[in-house]
């Protein structure tokens, strides 16, 4: 059962096979970027997201789905928690090896979250 909503949320998980972070998109597919993530604004939305997450976990596409609170800045979605911002962007180090890592202006972001 979904908790009462305080801010918009998206659904995230890790792919079962390669373990990588994914977000549930508006079209129902799982993508590595949160840009096109399905944004839940109401409790009904939340319940639907959770149901889809449970289904995807049962069908062994993903593991450990959960909701992440985000801030919708208009141009981008920004997870409220530091940990979730890191998951969305990839490591801020070893950039030569980690292609997903980009836009690591985490310090600046903190003003938004603070």
């Amino acid at each position: 059962m979904a908790k009462k909503i305080s801010g918009p949320r998206i659904l995230t998980a890790n792919l079962l096979g390669d373990g990588l972070v994914v977000f549930l998109g508006k079209d129902g597919s799982w993508a590595p970027s949160l840009e096109s993530a399905w944004l839940a604004h109401s409790n009904d939305d939340l319940e639907q997201l959770e149901a889809l997450g449970g289904e995807a976990a049962r069908s062994n596409t993903i593991v450990d789905p959960y909701l992440v609170e985000v801030e919708d800045t208009g141009s981008t979605l920004l997870p409220v928690e530091m940990r979730e911002r890191m998951r969305a962007r990839g490591p801020s180090v070893n950039l030569e090896f980690n292609s997903k890592s980009n836009g690591h202006a985490l310090v600046a972001d903190q003003a938004v979250a603070g």
Binding site: N14, D18, G19, L20, R83, M86, R87, G90, K100
Partner: peptide, 12 residues
């Protein structure tokens, strides 16, 4: 876990 495999922040 018994085989040393964790699921971490971004991947296994």
């Amino acid at each position: 876990l018994m085989n040393g495999l964790y699921l971490q922040l971004h991947a296994y």
